[in-house]
Amino acid sequence: MDAVDDAQERELAVLRRRAYGPDADIDTDPVARARLIELEERLRGRDAGEPAAPPDADGPAPPARRRPAWHTALVVTCAAAAIVLGVIAGTAPHAGEGVVLVDARTGVRITDSVIAGFVTSPHTRLLLSIPLDGSFGDYVDLPARAAPHLPDSSPARWLDRLGSYYVEQLWIGRTEAGRACLVVELGDTTRGRCIDPADFDDGSLLVAVPHAELSERPDGMRPGESLGFWWRPGGRVDVLVGPAPGGG
């Protein structure tokens, strides 16, 4: 199977935005839809319909290797994007110490007050929800690239590259100690965070990049806002933009 080069990887990132983003239009463009399927098939490198690998029982596992249901993800994500992220079931938009918020859009319990404030703010909007169901992972035949250092003292058990979403590269991984990690490459620098499995289950894995550190910015993003990558329970990484977490 032919490798996908850097230009095709960038093309795929654009097509995924058109398929999974809140302004998705790929269903009306058969040429783009066919190209997305072609690149997904090339990346997957496996027979369509192969069942997913079972999840790791003691923490978040790498993405399963199975056929990505991109059309279903398109419909679900577009519907989800129409929900205002700040609408919380019976709670205020900003969490205090010891308060657990439930995000109405995802149903995720968030125990970290700073992360909850960002995710549930009425001024935060969903740009993209990346499904980790088979299109991504270290089995993908992408151009060779050195993996970033994890913000953790443990070596990586696995590390998967998700692609370029307004940043140089987005990675998820897990350390030998069992901690879940999310790392964003920004040119020669990185931002990242590793957390324990229990904190991951409580929706507390977010990496936020300030407006000033981005060379490519989402339309409508303003100074004082941050681009947030939220790896959440449910097998997705949500790309959000909103007020800088914690006011920083």
Rank of each mutant, 00 (worst) to 15 (best):
R33Y: 02
D103Y: 03
E50L: 03
R44G: 01
Y166N: 02
R191I: 11
R145C: 04
G173S: 05
G220D: 14
A19Q: 06
E41C: 07
D2Q: 05
D138F: 03
D2P: 15
L85R: 00
L150I: 13
T189R: 12
L85C: 05
A52T: 01
V4M: 13
R179P: 09
H123R: 10
R193A: 15
G107S: 08
P30H: 03
W171V: 11
E176V: 11
A208Y: 11
L205R: 00
R44P: 03
P143W: 08
V100R: 10
V114G: 07
P143E: 05
V76P: 00
G107A: 14
R10H: 14
D47H: 08
P51E: 15
I26E: 10
R191L: 15
L43N: 07
R16G: 12
A146R: 07
D2W: 07
R157Y: 07
D201L: 12
A61T: 10
L127Q: 12
L39I: 00
P93S: 07
S121Q: 08
P218H: 04
V31T: 11
H211Y: 15
G173Q: 03
G246N: 03
T120C: 12
A32H: 09
I110N: 06
P233N: 10
R10Q: 02
D160K: 03
A53T: 01
G187P: 09
D133Y: 02
H123P: 12
D201W: 03
D56V: 05
A13G: 10
F200H: 15
G21L: 08
R217E: 08
P122T: 14
V108I: 14
R42K: 05
A53P: 07
G134L: 02
P68L: 09
V99L: 14
Q169D: 15
V99T: 13
A3F: 15
D160H: 03
R236I: 00
V114L: 07
F229N: 00
G203S: 10
G59V: 09
I195S: 12
D47R: 15
D27Y: 04
G246T: 06
A208H: 01
A32L: 08
L127N: 10
D133T: 13
S153N: 14
L132T: 06
P22A: 08
R232M: 12
A244W: 01
P243D: 09
T28V: 02
L15F: 06
W158G: 04
A116M: 05
P30T: 06
R17Q: 08
H94K: 13
V114S: 13
V241G: 04
A34G: 12
W231L: 02
G107N: 14
R161L: 12
L186H: 08
G163F: 10
R10M: 02
G45W: 13
I37Q: 06
D25M: 14
V87Y: 05
